[in-house]
Design a protein around this nucleic acid. Structure first.
Lengths: 262, 262
DNA sequence: CTCGCCCACTCGTCTAGATACCTAAAGGAG
DNA sequence: CTCCTTTAGGTATCTAGACGAGTGGGCGAG
């Protein structure tokens, strides 16, 4: 028996002001919210909905495109439209850069993912000197050129984060920070060895829809925003010593912060 | 002269694998990025693009819908499609709940907005006792019922944030916290007066596409995600005394945090 | 039994209209 | 001069159909 004859979806209200494709989207959304369609489950095909509602195919596709924009479903060519499963989220705690997390050989990302039972991976590592953008230059205190360290992070094969660290050349040039592998404890450990004892970090968080580039790099589904995090590290002399620009798939992250009530 | 004859947009590449509507979207996006169309400016109409590219109207509309999903443009019925202006952002600093910001008569939101030269407004204030959701109950330490304070914040008439505070009844019932106007310094000031000296806050941040409800409440344009912030306030005895659930228009906010490097 | 082909089903793209409704400006009635 | 109507030019919605292309199962040849 077709799923549509079993009363999962209702009828249209021809007297309603609401556009037909919105009504269909509403019904599908509600069915998903109520769990009538579970995560990963296939929705009725376009043809089935065309029959059920007696509308044209473009109207049905219009409904699907609404739900895609909301990040509720995703279409797979040749297979169908599916309820988008919620991926496991990675929780970034505000103490993630504490020194006590820095004494191991592996990076925080690897350690944490291993602990969570996922398979971590770091990708497209790229280290080079380049001209600082206006924004980066301002954040680092008017430097012209910087060392840029780019890398992509994946969990179980899925890209979740793309990050670029920028450091002033007078600090990083010729050190292990300029090597692809910065060594145990990462670049923050190296910075401290170089005499830049870290004092505090400042983080700026924005959320927005991804650019086409970011969609490609993070293999983002339709309707998934990105979290854009810009972190500046300051040493004990209050000098900015690193800016890290990170773009994260928003469906893969929860950021957690602890604030004093001082 | 039509904007289209002046070379703002190129031609299609019929040999490309890329779908025609994506090529058109690419060209429009690039023109916007390069500043050929400025913020708030009107893009060529559907009819003009139909003529220019020699495609059908649905194809052009498809291109526009891509750009809308990216939050780059918005359509106004009967007027045209416009480059979406970036609204002024409100910066939330991590010390925004510090005691020194609590000694004035007005709420932090009002004071800060006034300082920024915008017209702040608080709206749809609602205070009631209700059953705690599972999540809220867990965060407050297994309470059954809570006092809920809902309100919407607007800047220059635009809704930017919708927040609900939940407090355990044994703390809030019968106090000024249960009144629509909690008095100078807000509910945190009242909590401290009631002997719950605040110790620290925990914040969880997610970003996602809005639900249709949130689109309505925050009057969100297509392609604008929301930032979902859940803050828990702890008193000196490490007891959770308030949970605040906030949904913000992502294009109106930057969150800023300062972290110790300890 | 296995491999490869075919076919049914599915979504992706595009066309060519029709009707509805919104907006703003022009023009006419009063 | 003011107010209403008209009209031109916009987007919103919907239809009906065509072709393309990915997926996976069935079936026949070997």
């Amino acid at each position: 028996m077709s799923p549509l004859s079993s009363g999962l979806l209702g009828d249209l209200d021809p007297t309603s002001d609401r556009a037909v494709f919105r009504q269909i989207a509403d019904q599908l959304r509600e069915a998903i919210d109520r769990g009538r369609f579970r995560e990963g489950e296939k929705l009725p095909s376009e043809a089935e909905l065309v029959d059920h509602y007696g509308v044209s195919r473009m109207t049905v596709r219009n409904s699907f495109s609404i739900l895609q924009g909301e990040g509720l479903v995703h279409a797979e060519h040749g297979k169908g439209v599916f309820v988008r499963p919620r991926p496991p989220v990675r929780r970034l705690a505000s103490d993630r850069f504490a020194r006590r997390h820095r004494d191991q050989g592996k990076s925080a990302f690897i350690v944490e993912a291993d602990a969570a039972g996922s398979h971590p991976q770091v990708d497209s590592l790229e280290v080079q000197e380049e001209k600082a953008s206006q924004d980066i230059s301002a954040r680092l205190g008017s430097v012209r050129r910087v060392l840029a360290r780019r890398r992509r992070y994946l969990l179980d094969g899925r890209p979740v984060e793309f990050a670029t660290s920028y450091l002033p050349l007078d600090i990083a040039r010729g050190t292990q920070i300029a090597e692809p592998n910065p060594g145990p404890g990462g670049i923050y450990a190296r910075l401290e060895e170089l005499g830049h004892r870290l004092d505090h970090f400042e983080e700026e968080i924005r959320a927005r829809m991804p650019s086409p580039d970011e969609v490609r790099t993070l293999r983002l589904a339709a309707g998934v925003p990105v979290i854009h995090l810009i972190r500046t590290a300051f040493d004990a002399e209050k000098r900015p010593v690193e800016v890290c620009d990170t773009v994260m798939a928003a469906d893969a992250y929860v950021l957690a912060y602890q604030l004093p009530a001082t």
